[in-house]
Structure formats: structure tokens, C-alpha cells
Amino acid sequence: MDSTTWIPVGMGLAAVGMMGSGLGIGYIFGKMIEAVARQPEAEPVLAKYAWIGFALVETIALYALVIAFIIMGQG
């Protein structure tokens, strides 16, 4: 059993890291909905920050994907 049999395992483990970004995106938009429910006039200002935050959090999930690709290329 050589090391290349562990490559799919490594990729699967790297994909588990996306769990955190799922939580993060849910948190951002949950808070956004709450804030708009309290003060609907604030929506345009908050929406801009919500999308910026979303892009930054989603990037962490994509870092995990890049690591999975790096592991895939090792074989």
C-alpha cells in the first residue's frame, strides 16, 4: 500500500474544512436578516457589507478546495 492510496482520503479531509465557511455564511446572513428586521432603512448600507463579508468567508472554503487540488496533484 503506497502513499498514493491516501490521496483521496486527504482530499476528503480537506473538504471537511468547508464546514466552517458554511457556518460563517449562515451567521452573516442570519445577522443581516435580523438587522434588516429591526431597521429596514438600513438595508442598502448593510447589504453592501454583507456581500463583502460573504465573499471573504467563501474564500476560506475555496482555500480548502485549493488544498484538495494540491493533494490531488501529489500522486
Partner: peptide, 13 residues
């Protein structure tokens, strides 16, 4: 590094 990887990873993924 994060600036480059963010854009690259988003497009590739």
C-alpha cells in the same frame, strides 16, 4: 497571497 489566491480559487472552483 490572499489577494491572489482568493481570486484564483473563486474562478477555478
Amino acid at each position: 497571497i490572499s489577494l491572489a489566491v482568493r481570486l484564483f480559487a473563486n474562478m477555478t472552483a
